[in-house]
């Protein structure tokens, strides 16, 4: 596998986990936050499908979703839910930063857009910004 296809598969794995995670956390939120979680759920489902198409177009077999994903802590409150959403977006941001590095052309452009989107969603969930979204080694 090329580095770009490895990065695509890693991103797909994180999109699978994000779809699962937003499904778990959305029910702990209300109002505008619940709407935002539902929007994120739909967005990540759509990206998962786009990634599956990109990976198949390269002749690779897309990684499958697990039946369930380990949630790093119990999601019992709205604060837990926003913390998990932040983590999901941070992990996706790291995947897309790797993809920016590994890919070129249209795939790099898409990775840049999705890294930016993950960073903006994380800012909204977290309430603060970070200097280097997607680059945890610089945090």
């Amino acid at each position: 596998m090329t580095r770009a296809s490895t990065a695509l598969q890693a991103a797909l794995g994180n999109e699978h986990a994000a779809v699962y995670g937003y499904g778990v956390l959305a029910v702990r939120l209300a109002g505008a936050q619940r709407d935002a979680a539902r929007n994120a759920f739909d967005t990540h489902r759509a990206r998962r499908d786009i990634l599956i198409g990109l990976i198949e177009a390269q002749g690779d077999k897309p990684v499958a979703a697990a039946p369930a994903y380990a949630v790093p802590f119990p999601v019992a409150t709205a604060a837990d839910a926003t913390r998990l959403a932040t983590q999901l977006e941070e992990r996706l941001g790291a995947s897309y930063a790797d993809l920016v590095q590994a890919a070129s052309g249209d795939t790099r452009r898409t990775a840049l857009e999705w890294l930016t989107d993950a960073a903006v969603r994380a800012v909204r969930w977290r309430g603060t910004s970070v200097a280097f979204p997607g680059l945890p080694e610089r945090a």
Binding site: V100, T116, V120, S129
Partner: peptide, 27 residues
């Protein structure tokens, strides 16, 4: 190159995050 692209992409994403933070609003 890949390494420079990754750094600049992260910086661009950070700046979009700053704009979102300054604009405010819910998640």
């Amino acid at each position: 190159d890949g390494g420079t692209a990754m750094l600049l992409a992260s910086i661009a994403a950070s700046e979009s995050g700053h704009a979102a933070l300054l604009l405010g609003g819910a998640a």
